[in-house]
Amino acid sequence: MRWFETTLRVRFNEVDPWGVVWYANYFAYVEAARAELLDRFRLLPGELRRLGFTAPVIRVRADYKAPARFHDRLRVRLGLRPSEAAKLVFRFRIDREADAARIMEGETEQVLLRDGSILVYKLKGPLKERIEAMSRWFEGDVTA
């Protein structure tokens, strides 16, 4: 499986009084990577809305391994777990670039809703095509 990867630097406003990244900011890092990835496949929230869908996060799991600190450069990696259902399950890993220390890892799960409240069980049309293209990319299909 291929990973989507981006890097960022911890900013001063993201750390607590002890100089450690405040725990919820790690999710902002994951979200920044996910937005970058979804933009590539035209799956950002605005585009989903135009297609008549929303994709709320319904589950998050996170395991904190080591602290990140001000000015650390972090590598955020995302993987897409295959699913037969109409949902997006992203694995994520955050590592410090300087020493490759694992900072955090986990998973998010998003379901797809049509018209804001109707759970989608089977994908169709442009949304299906875009999600399948993203899945192929993670499987290593360079034509996707």
Rank of each mutant, 00 (worst) to 15 (best):
F70V: 07
E84N: 13
G19N: 09
P17S: 00
V10C: 15
V30I: 13
K87I: 01
V10I: 15
L113H: 00
L51W: 11
D16I: 10
A33T: 05
T54G: 13
T54D: 14
R9C: 11
F92Q: 08
V10D: 11
A33Q: 07
Y29A: 01
A66D: 12
A85R: 15
D16G: 05
E14W: 11
L78F: 13
L37E: 03
R40S: 07
P45W: 05
M104H: 02
N25V: 07
N13S: 14
R96Q: 05
D63F: 12
R50N: 13
F12T: 12
L112G: 04
G116Y: 06
A24S: 14
E84Q: 14
L48P: 10
A85L: 13
E14G: 07
P56G: 00
P17M: 00
R73Y: 04
E109I: 05
N25M: 10
D95Q: 13
A100Q: 14
H71E: 13
K87N: 11
D16A: 10
N25T: 05
N13T: 02
P56M: 00
R77H: 04
L113D: 02
A98V: 08
N13E: 14
M104R: 11
R9M: 15
V10N: 15
Q110P: 12
T54W: 05
G116Q: 08
E97R: 11
R61N: 04
T54C: 06
T108P: 13
R11I: 08
A33R: 09
R50S: 11
R61T: 15
A62F: 06
V57I: 15
W22M: 06
E107Y: 10
V111W: 02
A68S: 13
E105S: 03
